[in-house]
Design a protein around this nucleic acid. Structure first.
Lengths: 157, 157
DNA sequence: CACAAATAATCTGCTGTCAAACAGTCTGCG
DNA sequence: CGCAGACTGTTTGACAGCAGATTATTTGTG
């Protein structure tokens, strides 16, 4: 073996074959890579991915219960607790009891939260461009449409 | 609101909008759903996803070190330890020391492992069909190609 | 009103994943 | 040879995600 036998040389390269056969595995591995990139980006920004999503939703649709946030953002209730805790501690959101139903909170974004959100939002396009640079614009559109069908089956008709 | 205000009624439905804007989030959420389905399917088959992948790779490319398995299957080394432990305990694989390099094992599939693999393989097409039934064959091809580009950037030229 | 059932948020325990440290082995260089 | 550095497999600790139990509150029913 005089070849410069590096770990992932080429020659073996079993993974591409697997990814072609197992769409589920390819999807999970790609997602893991993207998720890591997103988390790293978020850490650099100082605002977790979940916190960012919550702030954005609060900004767009107004005060929400944690329940609603959980369901619409597909984040587990028990995880949402921690996210709201941190947002509140940072002063980006407030938990006010809903007077109509005191079981639930009305989570509300603050001015500080809006400012922080604007900051974080500004860096998203570059992040997406960087993460999906391997794809053409057309392919990104295809991917978006396909994922939408996977996520909301039956919405298209 | 006399409407039967179910939790995810429609009307709010913020998630689709988010998924359209944030390709990364859409990818992660879809992957989580698929991953859960795969894990559930594997549990029903009695052979974990990781174990299945390892058996398949051993069958296709022959005995491998855990390191090679880890790299090619994109499974962390420390996770691979447990997978090989279970395969060995079930008699589906053996760990033999590589006499040329006693740091590494040569993990080898057994006849029992080959039989188990054949069984598990048989159920995969139906699982994939079920999981991706929301997509046309054409879309599945597009998705596969797009994921390949995301996973192996720069291979296409 | 009294009480059973449902709901929102929270807490707890379990599982799976990853990073970092560790022990044993090989390789290359003096 | 002798030793520094790299590599393989393993263990440990930290952390996210999820299921189930818990508490406080609301709603419906007699």
């Amino acid at each position: 073996m005089a070849t410069t036998t590096r770990t992932t040389d080429r020659g073996a390269a079993y993974f591409p074959q697997l990814a072609a056969e197992r769409l589920d595995i390819a999807l999970c591995r790609a997602s893991a890579a993207v998720s890591r990139a997103a988390e790293a980006h978020a850490a650099g920004e100082g605002l977790g991915v979940g916190q960012h999503l919550v702030l954005q939703m609060l900004d767009v649709v107004g005060p929400c219960s944690q329940q609603t946030l959980s369901e619409e953002l597909r984040i587990d209730r028990s995880v949402m607790v921690g996210i709201c805790d941190e947002l509140e501690r940072a002063g980006h959101a407030r938990r006010e009891r809903n007077p109509r139903d005191r079981r639930s909170y009305a989570v509300t974004i603050t001015d500080s939260g809006r400012a922080r959100l604007a900051e974080a939002q500004a860096s998203i396009p570059a992040f997406l461009e960087d993460t999906f640079q391997a794809l053409t614009l057309d392919e990104r559109g295809q991917l978006s449409a396909i994922l939408a069908k996977l996520l909301h089956p039956g919405v298209d008709r």
